[in-house]
Design a protein around this nucleic acid. Structure first.
Lengths: 218, 218
DNA sequence: CGACGATGTTAGCCGTGCCTGACCTCGGCC
DNA sequence: GGCCGAGGTCAGGCACGGCTAACATCGTCG
């Protein structure tokens, strides 16, 4: 399990849970490598029984198991960096990206125990268990929440660290409940109220915030 | 700075501070690779102005700077793993060996601060500062301490993790002062008294323990 | 002095993981 | 039906970091 292989498996897993079709092209774009490189690697993964190559790529049971291990390490590390070292939540993804490949089972277990076996990372992403099944479902994006409802934030995508920082500064974090107000037209912002404060959120941002409607309001 | 390059530079540095002559052969043995591999890598390092190739290998200023950075990360990590995660001191070396290559400057600084800028790792090895000079001197080995003296342990080599565990269980740690008793002949053990308990230490072990004589006893 | 053993280097090879450039294979559209 | 463009794959190459086998070099000792 080289770092490159781990990254490919993890990315295939995350793309598919995100509902995107997993093709060599999508992988190339996501991993920032050329498509011939992806082709070659996917061939190796298929030879190793980790990936099935149809018109869309899928993980075998073994491949998914490995992917989950990587995702688990990644999210445990993010949680640890925020809780134990008070690192800002917009920096931890990048760090974990490196460390996830260097974390031994022994240390992983120790971190897990020190954190009290957390179930979600700082962005609200579920941490796969050391063994067994895993539910990666996303709630609905804030973008589609109806005006006037109360919306409980469950996950905030960590893909854009700058956006994460921006949202964090405005109190938009998992566990927070916001009041959804109007949607300005023509690609304008969505207005929400966060602990009294009125905040305008660009469409790009409301697409990153997922959760569920708590109570239909006025 | 690839992991392999970091390992070579670190090893050259540690071998030379240990007083051993740094040759390609010594590196091959230490790094567990063939000597042609070492030859090739040393050539690359020399091309990169990190190493000088005489009859013995020496680090250039740039090479030593890099080596110190790696050693610093390694020892900070060891300290962190013991202090923050209560990992046993005989396990941390191995973990740090992996993590040292994945630690960003940002995270390094955060760990350093969280530990209160420690000066020594759990084995008593000095942690190089973020910049500037560094003193790697070893005290004298317990093996040569005269009978009847009191001996303050300063460093315990982390090269043999099994020995480290054995010594730790018997209270032989940096900061501890032991009373040196007789040396059995014919390669027999050295007897020492640790907080009242009489302990026999094989020659291999007394060579791993370094420190200084505190007071000449009876 | 000459042979031998230790040490180091050269030559040639392999797997990994990336690249560019060329090709192939579709589906859709004129 | 033929052509175009998008997506995927071959071909060929490169840097890295390792390997074995063979050769060079050197010091020592008979």
């Amino acid at each position: 399990m080289t770092p490159a292989v781990e990254d490919y498996l993890k990315t295939i897993f995350l793309l598919s849970t995100r509902g995107e079709t997993v093709t060599t092209g999508a992988l190339a774009k996501e991993l920032q490598v050329s498509s011939p490189s992806v082709s070659a690697m996917v061939k190796r993964l298929a030879d190793g029984e980790l990936v099935r190559r149809g018109r869309t790529l899928t993980l075998t049971a073994a491949g998914e198991r490995e992917a989950l291990r990587v995702v688990r390490r990644h999210r445990l590390l993010e949680t640890f960096l925020v809780r134990a070292l008070e690192m800002p939540w917009d920096e931890v993804h990048e760090e974990a990206e490196q460390l996830e490949h260097a974390l031994s089972d022994r240390l992983e277990a120790r971190i897990d125990a020190a954190l009290g076996h957390p179930t979600h990372d700082p962005h609200g992403d579920p941490i796969p268990g050391a063994a067994g099944r895993h539910d990666e479902s996303w709630g609905q994006p804030l973008a589609v929440a109806p005006e006037g409802c109360r919306f409980a934030i469950e996950r905030v995508s960590d893909r854009r660290s700058d956006a994460l920082r921006y949202l964090g500064e405005r109190g938009l974090r998992p566990g927070v409940v916001v009041e959804v107000e109007e949607q300005d037209p023509y690609g304008g912002p969505r207005w929400v109220r966060v602990s009294g404060e009125r905040v305008a959120l660009a469409p790009l941002l409301t697409a990153l915030i997922h959760g569920r409607v708590v109570r239909q309001g006025a």
